[in-house]
Amino acid sequence: MAAGGDHGSPDSYRSPLASRYASPEMCFVFSDRYKFRTWRQLWLWLAEAEQTLGLPITDEQIQEMKSNLENIDFKMAAEEEKRLRHDVMAHVHTFGHCCPKAAGIIHLGATSCYVGDNTDLIILRNALDLLLPKLARVISRLADFAKERASLPTLGFTHFQPAQLTTVGKRCCLWIQDLCMDLQNLKRVRDDLRFRGVKGTTGTQASFLQLFEGDDHKVEQLDKMVTEKAGFKRAFIITGQTYTRKVDIEVLSVLASLGASVHKICTDIRLLANLKEMEEPFEKQQIGSSAMPYKRNPMRSERCCSLARHLMTLVMDPLQTASVQWFERTLDDSANRRICLAEAFLTADTILNTLQNISEGLVVYPKVIERRIRQELPFMATENIIMAMVKAGGSRQDCHEKIRVLSQQAASVVKQEGGDNDLIERIQVDAYFSPIHSQLDHLLDPSSFTGRASQQVQRFLEEEVYPLLKPYESVMKVKAELCL
């Protein structure tokens, strides 16, 4: 049975990233139509530049190519590739079939990587351009969430054990800070992308030097003109047959890092959902379990974690691919890159769409948070109580021993009897502590235990987050809708 299948058929496997999760716009960027249309555009740009620099290419040939950029006979191309065992030459023939007058000058002087690699770089750039505003929107939604809850005390956790208090907004800023680093890295790697350009079979530009009869300047002009037509500021000066596969490492490393950030955020949300302090959106008709109707599973956060793990592992592909590119190139890269580049971007696209949807509907339960604080705060307040007693004339050592005994009794009630923490009640009825009984409410005010959390939130948002989001103001209103 021949390899390949009808990918629109229910009898043929289709990647869930495309069929179930990723956005239509990201799927289109990695589609065959987008790819092969870009090949034709690159052939047109090459012909236009070659004509401008004096090669015998007519206006009629150029116009014929322009008129057929979208006229792609995919069936013919597939048949040609089956016959020739070469995808680029299959599309040269297919393009030439609908451009008979231009057929002889299509791909003039070029090698397969002229269309293959340059198209990949265009796709990487455009895919990054799709991700950047999506990530900015996630940051914006979380920034709104953090600002609104900047002063809401909550129990902090280290080692997932109760620690000092923080605020809900401050905790959210930990998430935002990681995503801001990801946004900066995505922008950097996007701006650092260079075009492969017009380089020939081993990167020496020998074929173009021959076409222009040894004119170095025209060869350099050709490279520059096509690079500018493709919208790049610069091209690699040095290439082998391909652009260095280190570029793929750079791009997928940034995406993998984004995956790590999203995994951490969504894990926190899942843990908070278990504590009943916070939940992701839950639709009115949504079913959490087929057997347990009360369940409210954090399905979206779980999906993000599941896909983020996949995204983090994909960076190993370009690392290994770059390491086995012998001399000017081997074909070890080809099949692998067809999979890992598309999957990385479709996965990143999915987790950003999902995280935006989550961040637009996060639900906080202040009463649950308050109750958990009441359970733990008495123990945390013991040092403040000791200091207040010393100020009232008591002995630190005597007070410490009193607190120690009462704390152990209260802990026994919590752990052995399943009761509430009654340390404060014990202190309130103990005559030894009568000098500070009137101060206990103040000493137990949760806001006095959150330090500068709310001020940190305000400063972080104003100095770091809002300036970073400013270039994306025009796209901030787009909502994230999930079908599944």
Score class of each variant (00 low, 15 high):
residue 465 V to Y: 03
residue 414 V to S: 05
residue 396 R to W: 02
residue 162 P to I: 06
residue 194 R to W: 08
residue 14 R to T: 15
residue 386 I to D: 01
residue 459 R to W: 10
residue 254 V to E: 09
residue 390 V to S: 07
residue 96 G to P: 00
residue 460 F to L: 07
residue 455 Q to A: 12
residue 282 F to V: 07
residue 219 V to F: 04
residue 427 I to W: 05
residue 338 R to H: 01
residue 139 I to C: 08
residue 381 A to C: 07
residue 339 I to G: 05
residue 114 Y to I: 05
residue 179 L to R: 02
residue 22 A to K: 09
residue 33 R to M: 14
residue 111 T to R: 02
residue 110 A to M: 04
residue 73 D to R: 07
residue 134 K to C: 12
residue 12 S to Y: 10
residue 406 L to Y: 13
residue 258 L to S: 08
residue 405 V to Y: 12
residue 269 I to A: 04
residue 357 N to K: 05
residue 13 Y to T: 15
residue 170 K to V: 00
residue 44 L to F: 06
residue 413 V to M: 13
residue 228 E to L: 10
residue 82 K to P: 14
residue 322 A to I: 14
residue 235 A to Y: 14
residue 239 T to S: 14
residue 114 Y to T: 06
residue 218 K to W: 10
residue 382 T to H: 02
residue 251 V to C: 10
residue 374 R to L: 06
residue 269 I to C: 05
residue 241 Q to N: 00
residue 372 R to M: 05
residue 416 Q to L: 14
residue 426 R to P: 00
residue 38 T to R: 05
residue 139 I to Y: 07
residue 363 V to F: 08
residue 411 A to R: 07
residue 413 V to R: 12
residue 24 P to F: 15
residue 258 L to P: 02
residue 178 D to C: 07
residue 276 K to C: 05
residue 417 E to L: 12
residue 79 E to Y: 15
residue 193 L to F: 14
residue 337 R to K: 12
residue 11 D to C: 13
residue 181 M to L: 12
residue 274 N to R: 03
residue 432 Y to G: 09
residue 12 S to P: 07
residue 462 E to I: 12
residue 29 V to I: 12
residue 387 M to V: 10
residue 173 C to S: 11
residue 358 I to A: 15
residue 124 L to S: 12
residue 340 C to A: 15
residue 84 L to F: 07
residue 173 C to V: 06
residue 115 V to D: 03
residue 200 G to T: 00
residue 424 I to A: 15
residue 164 Q to S: 11
residue 165 L to C: 05
residue 216 D to W: 11
residue 195 F to Q: 02
residue 248 D to G: 02
residue 459 R to D: 10
residue 169 G to F: 01
residue 78 A to Y: 13
residue 144 D to W: 14
residue 408 Q to G: 15
residue 46 L to S: 05
residue 415 K to Q: 06
residue 338 R to T: 03
residue 388 A to H: 05
residue 55 L to D: 04
residue 456 Q to D: 04
residue 459 R to M: 13
residue 45 W to A: 12
residue 464 E to Q: 10
residue 386 I to S: 06
residue 288 G to W: 03
residue 384 N to C: 12
residue 229 K to M: 08
residue 195 F to K: 00
residue 277 E to N: 02
residue 75 K to V: 12
residue 320 Q to T: 12
residue 319 L to H: 03
residue 266 C to D: 05
residue 340 C to P: 00
residue 51 Q to G: 08
residue 398 D to K: 13
residue 409 Q to K: 13
residue 195 F to R: 02
residue 462 E to D: 12
residue 186 L to R: 02
residue 292 M to G: 01
residue 226 V to L: 15
residue 264 K to L: 04
residue 23 S to D: 15
residue 197 G to M: 00
residue 282 F to M: 03
residue 306 S to R: 02
residue 353 N to Y: 05
residue 63 Q to G: 11
residue 286 Q to D: 00
residue 384 N to R: 07
residue 168 V to A: 07
residue 30 F to I: 09
residue 275 L to S: 13
residue 470 K to D: 15
residue 26 M to P: 02
residue 479 K to V: 11
residue 311 L to E: 02
residue 328 E to Y: 02
residue 298 P to Q: 05
residue 482 L to H: 06
residue 321 T to S: 10
residue 135 L to C: 07
residue 104 G to I: 08
residue 263 H to V: 06
residue 80 E to I: 15
residue 88 V to Q: 05
residue 62 I to W: 06
residue 412 S to L: 14
residue 435 P to F: 06
residue 91 H to K: 01
residue 483 C to K: 10
residue 328 E to G: 05
residue 301 S to E: 06
residue 82 K to I: 15
residue 390 V to W: 05
residue 450 T to Y: 06
residue 421 N to M: 09
residue 284 K to W: 14
residue 56 P to M: 10
residue 169 G to A: 03
residue 196 R to Q: 14
residue 265 I to T: 13
residue 208 F to K: 05
residue 246 K to Q: 03
residue 381 A to L: 11
residue 346 L to D: 00
residue 112 S to E: 00
residue 79 E to F: 12
residue 234 R to K: 11
